[in-house]
């Protein structure tokens, strides 16, 4: 296989299989993560995501398959270009924030001076300069999470692998971290994100892969996935009478759901029947109600996730 054509690929996971004493953790999983994208790795608990992330980080050796980093077979030397924030993460409780950054930064190849410089930048950015000499045990869980994030990105890695990065953060800090990730993406970094927080995945990921029962069952751009799994539903937000809305529709449309936003304000989801199109729906409604907005309903990542995972779980239970 030639990689000159694949220069856009930052990480290639090729036919990875891994078993732990008869229990299959990963079964022939392949992924391509492009440079400069935020890639979401989704899957229910126990699907094999963490094992895959550990294999990428060379913490666990695969039974089969290989990982390429920037076109080269992944070695220990590449780890300095990766920033890894595991799901189950800890810090040395008795160490100060600065000493922690120095230790982990140096482990990732930075000099002491570089660590201090970059730490300064991040402490300024998060407005937490006064944390520098605090011991980890003096920090709250959320504060410690922030320190962990800083230590992960301190060495400006080409590839950032974050396993449940938003857990433990309050909504404000979730937004802050999201913003940082988007900025990193803009600056050309590649980010792999494993999360159960579908809202965040949908908000910041370019592409996602769904791993379920040790196998990759889906991979693609979020918009493409939503397109392929949409159900032909449209939503209309309007002012007026619900009766008028229902009367305006004829047999070519089916009301799926409605939300009452106020006394005379509604959002109604409608499904087309036959050859009817969105334009046909708008035509029958105009003049009957005051349309404020109308749009095509695309499935959320949460819905796609449940749609894909639920039937398999049910099948397994049935068997």
């Amino acid at each position: 296989m030639s990689y000159s054509l694949e220069s856009n690929t930052m990480l290639e996971v090729q036919n990875i299989s891994k078993s732990f004493h008869r229990k299959v953790a990963l079964d022939d999983v392949s992924l391509n993560i492009h440079k400069g994208e935020i890639f979401g790795m989704l899957g229910p608990n126990g699907a094999g995501k963490t094992t895959l992330i550990r294999i990428i980080n060379k913490i666990v050796q695969p039974d089969k398959g290989l990982v390429r980093f920037n076109g080269e077979i992944m070695t220990q030397n590449h780890l300095s270009q990766i920033g890894y924030l595991p799901e189950e993460r800890g810090l040395y409780r008795s160490m100060t924030v600065e000493n922690h950054a120095l230790f982990l930064g140096q482990l990732r190849g930075l000099s002491k001076a570089d660590v201090k410089l970059k730490l300064n930048y991040w402490l300024d950015k998060f407005d937490i300069q006064n944390w520098r000499d605090k011991r980890i045990e003096e920090l709250s869980k959320g504060m410690a999470q922030k320190v962990q994030f800083i230590c992960t990105v301190l060495h400006e890695p080409q590839l950032l692998i974050l396993d449940e990065p938003f857990s433990g953060f309050d909504p404000i800090n979730v937004e802050l971290i999201k913003q940082e990730l988007i900025e990193m993406k803009i600056s050309g970094k590649t980010i792999i994100l494993s999360s159960h927080n579908m809202e965040s995945v949908e908000a910041i990921c370019d592409r996602v892969a769904l791993i379920h029962q040790s196998k990759k069952i889906m991979e693609g751009r979020i918009s493409e996935l939503q397109e392929t799994r949409k159900k032909g539903e449209y939503a209309v937000r309007f002012r007026g009478s619900m009766i008028a809305f229902v009367n305006a529709l004829w047999t070519g449309f089916e009301i799926v759901d409605k939300d009452i936003l106020g006394d005379d304000k509604f959002v109604v989801r409608v499904k087309m029947r036959g050859e009817n199109k969105f334009e046909d729906l708008l035509k029958v409604l105009i003049g009957q109600i005051n349309i404020e907005a109308a749009w095509e309903v695309l499935p959320s990542m949460q819905e796609i996730f449940i749609d894909l995972v639920q039937p398999k779980i049910e099948n397994n239970h049935a068997q």
Partner: peptide, 17 residues
């Protein structure tokens, strides 16, 4: 202790066991 406070995985992301 490193195992129970889970810093070990952070370390294993930089060095081999």
């Amino acid at each position: 202790r490193e195992k129970s406070n889970r810093i070990v995985e952070v370390l294993l992301g930089c060095v081999n066991p």
